[in-house]
């Protein structure tokens, strides 16, 4: 893992060479700001922050695929992947560095929303910092799980648009559809319980974010997100290694 710092630095800084990253970050902040404004009008207290972070978890199903779509598919298309894998660098280092680079960028994208807490104090609200910290931790873990999935999808194709759409469909399914089918989300009516709904309910992203929103850091939820991250990275390494089997 000696090359990890160099690879991660390259991965993180490469975001700022592309106008796409600025566009994504700007839209994200505008979207988060508007959502916060609407929520704040409704609930003039710390709940606005909790609702916002839960809502951002859902919105990340759209924004994270835009961050991850280029991670490997761009290198595959431009041929730089050949340069990378023929250098003395392991496939694990490549996968982990790309994951860390995207994670740092996402953290940077989310960071300005911390200021919203200060806004709450200015309008007379009393933020519950413990709950907010837990919500941020949950949002970051959720985003990292999204990134690991997006990274794997990006390793499968040289087409960034295909990578983005596939990642979005997968994230949307696990955040929204699974919750809808199993009734494991608070915000949706229990339409129909389907077979294996308990198992599917466990896979539902949103369900694992709920305790963080209440200020609880449940180890089961942490393990759940960590498992998805490890699985995504493992599959990415296997996908990179697949050139050796073909």
């Amino acid at each position: 893992m000696t090359n990890l710092p160099a690879l991660t630095k390259r991965e993180f800084t490469s975001n700022f060479y592309s106008p796409m990253a600025y566009v994504i970050a700007t839209f994200y902040l505008v979207f988060a700001g508007l959502s916060f404004y609407i929520l704040l009008k409704d609930q003039r207290d710390a709940n606005a922050m909790r609702s916002l972070l839960t809502f951002l978890g859902f919105i990340h199903t759209i924004f994270i695929p835009m961050v991850t779509m280029r991670l490997i598919s761009e290198e595959r298309k431009s041929g730089t992947l050949e340069m990378l894998v023929t250098a003395p660098v392991s496939d694990t280092e490549i996968a982990v560095s790309k994951f860390l680079g995207a994670t740092l960028f996402t953290a940077l994208m989310i960071a300005p929303t911390v200021l919203f807490t200060w806004v709450i104090t200015k309008v007379g609200g009393r933020p519950d910092y413990g709950m907010i910290k837990a919500s941020y931790l949950g949002l970051m873990l959720l985003s990292m799980a999204y990134i690991a999935i997006g990274l794997f999808i990006s390793s499968l194709t040289a087409n960034q648009i295909v990578a983005a759409i596939l990642t979005f469909v997968l994230l949307f399914t696990f955040y929204f559809l699974v919750g809808f089918l199993t009734g494991s989300t608070d915000s949706l009516p229990l339409h129909a319980k389907i077979p294996w709904s308990d198992i599917l309910g466990y896979l539902h992203f949103g369900a694992h974010l709920q305790s963080f929103g209440k200020g609880l850091v449940d180890s089961r939820d942490v393990v759940y997100f960590a498992s998805i991250i490890v699985l995504g990275l493992f599959l990415t390494v296997k996908s990179l290694e697949s050139r050796r089997w073909r």
């Binding site: 060479y17 992947l81 250098a87 003395p88 660098v89």
Partner: peptide, 30 residues
């Protein structure tokens, strides 16, 4: 891989890096 220098036919390079920066990065990886 530690003992070879390889230049593929298409010469894929990171377009967003400066020449010096790119060579330094690759030297570090190598």
């Amino acid at each position: 891989r530690r003992r070879i220098g390889y230049m593929p036919e298409r010469v894929p390079l990171y377009e967003d890096m400066r020449v010096e920066e790119y060579l330094d990065y690759r030297a570090r990886l190598r």
